[in-house]
Computed example of a mutant assay.
Amino acid sequence: MKIIRWLNDHLEEYVLSGLLVVIAGVMMLQVIMRYVFNNSLSWAEEASRYAFIWSALISIGYSIKERNILRVDTLIEALPRPLRNLMTNLGNLTVVAFFGYLSISAVPAVQRVMRSSQTSPALKVHMGWIYLAAILGFFLATFRAVQRLRADFKDSSGKAEL
């Protein structure tokens, strides 16, 4: 149970930190190789791009978890509390539906890539591993949006009883 709680609290932070280290390390190595040794790496740009893709998709769930997802709440804050709670829950439900749809829609696309023999040009990594970031990122976003919906619904129902 401790492991699940730790993963719930810190999974995205550690994955995103690791991906940032990979991007920075590979780019620093590329700069050193190019300007000090006058010889660039053929795979550095591709590795950084794929790490960036993974970090962009994983960060969606983290943004939802930390309440940093982009939204305009000026109108919502002006509403009375019961209506504000309703609008917040409807917004959360919309986010759940949107990322749930993307999660489901990403599966056939990734399956097609997995069945192909396409590999990346420089790294020779099967492209299915790169596209897998879409499924994982959208699923994680859906999971975090469900958690947010549950927490906000619990908060709004608890405040309404007071």
Rank of each mutant, 00 (worst) to 15 (best):
E45S: 13
I53M: 11
V22K: 00
R67P: 06
D73E: 14
R148G: 09
V22A: 10
S117H: 07
S40R: 00
V36S: 04
I53A: 10
V21P: 03
A134H: 01
Y62E: 10
W43G: 05
R148A: 13
P121E: 09
I4V: 13
Y35H: 02
N68E: 15
E77H: 08
R71I: 11
W129E: 12
W43Q: 05
S116E: 10
P80Y: 07
S103M: 04
S42T: 15
I58Q: 03
F139Q: 07
S55I: 07
G25Q: 02
N92R: 09
T119K: 02
R148P: 04
Y35K: 02
I69D: 15
A109C: 10
V125Y: 03
V125A: 00
F98I: 12
R34S: 10
M87S: 15
L29K: 01
I76K: 03
V95I: 14
I4Y: 04
G18H: 04
S63F: 03
L70S: 09
M28A: 15
A145E: 07
E66V: 12
I58L: 10
A47Y: 01
R115D: 15
I69H: 14
W54A: 15
A133D: 13
L19W: 00
A97F: 09
G91M: 08
K124N: 13
A141H: 00
M28D: 08
V110R: 05
V96W: 06
G100M: 12
T94D: 05
V107S: 11
E66R: 09
